[in-house]
């Protein structure tokens, strides 16, 4: 009975229908927009099984994996952002906060730097995911034994800074300008030229991560009352933190490994959708995931439409739009607390 699940309550039914519809539309849009002239007529021909060989190649081998990854990465970032904001009870939190994205980026950079990425296609995402998991182990260790969130943030900042320093070091020591250029471009974040291999590699990590994060819904609701009250409602803070960290590491680590770092989606989407689910953290999870998918697919379509000569990178676009929005949020938050 999906309608009775707390993630999908009847009161917000129309919102979820709209989000679902938009997800399907942007997904389809991602399939029909591109450099070649293959469009919606060809997409329809695929459905009836009468597509040309050219359309088959472009739609199913090039654009479909890209659209799927856009969907999955966007969903991960939206969901991760909603979980982090709920867990820290802070509307300015984002999934990169606990160090996972920084570490995943560094892991990818290392595979480019050493040349492993050129040897076989999956070396980069694999190296990236492994580094992310290692970083999480480190963050857990640094964050201490009691379930508090302050040390976790500090540990996340420390790991992120260190990973970014190591990334800079790799750039600094790059054997030739092509390597540094490749690293730079990868760091900007993109979904271009990804294949089904990437989809299959990251999917299991993401699905397990999502499952862990969705389990947190009730705990996040209880945390609305603060950590003490949540504990006396029967929730174990340490258990919550473990689930959260591992869930974010698996899903966001996998997302970063395949797309590079894509900023602001995880920050902006939960913030925009919160009022539509009555500010309830558990109801925000699915909504924010779908919202993230919609935003990222839209941005990825925009990137393709705007690209003329040099490809505009997806992460650049999201940051270009996201940073001013972030500033707007800060100004607005300040005004609210002052009044």
């Amino acid at each position: 009975m999906p309608l009775k699940s707390p993630l999908f309550s009847i009161e917000h039914c129309s919102l979820f229908l709209v989000l679902l519809l938009l997800t399907i539309l942007t997904f389809a849009g991602s399939l029909i927009v591109g450099a070649s002239s293959v469009g919606w007529k060809d997409l329809l021909s695929v459905f009836v099984g009468q597509e040309s060989e050219m359309a088959h190649l472009i739609l199913l081998e090039i654009r479909l994996p890209r659209a799927l990854l856009g969907l999955m990465v966007g969903f991960t970032l939206g969901l991760g952002g909603a979980v982090l904001q709920g867990y820290l009870r802070n509307p300015l939190a984002e999934p990169g906060l606990i160090g996972v994205s920084g570490a995943a980026s560094f892991g990818a950079v290392i595979t480019i730097y050493t040349g492993a990425a050129g040897l076989f296609a999956l070396a980069l995402p694999l190296g990236s995911i492994l580094t992310a998991l290692f970083a999480v182990f480190l963050v857990q260790l640094l964050a201490g034994k009691n379930g508090g969130s302050l040390r976790l943030i500090l540990a996340g900042i420390a790991v992120t800074s260190f990973a970014s320093a190591l990334t800079s070091l790799a750039l600094n020591m790059a054997p030739n300008p092509f390597v540094s250029l490749e690293i730079m471009f990868w760091l900007m974040g993109s979904l271009a030229d990804r294949s089904f291999e990437h989809v299959w590699l990251v999917m299991p990590f993401m699905i397990i991560g999502w499952a862990l994060l969705f389990k947190l819904g009730r705990s996040l609701d209880a945390l609305t009352l603060g950590e003490d009250a949540a504990q006396t409602l029967g929730f174990n803070l340490k258990h919550i933190r473990h689930l959260m960290i591992i869930g974010v590491a698996l899903s966001v680590g996998a997302a970063t490994s395949v797309s590079g770092s894509i900023g602001f989606v995880g920050l902006v989407v939960p913030h925009l959708l919160r009022r539509w689910v009555g500010h309830k953290p558990s109801a925000l999870l699915l909504a924010s995931g779908l919202g993230g998918a919609i935003l990222l697919l839209t941005a990825d379509i925009a990137v393709r439409l705007l690209t003329t000569g040099t490809e505009l990178k997806l992460g650049v676009l999201t940051s270009l739009i996201g940073a001013p929005f972030f500033l707007f949020l800060i100004v607005k938050t300040k005004r609210n607390t002052m009044s």
Partner: peptide, 23 residues
């Protein structure tokens, strides 16, 4: 346990807040 300070971190409705007691 009813903590001091009556904090509610999100602006949920009164009814959904009281419903948290049923968790």
């Amino acid at each position: 346990y009813l903590p001091q300070g009556n904090e509610s971190h999100w602006s949920i409705t009164v009814e959904s807040l009281v419903m948290l007691g049923r968790l």
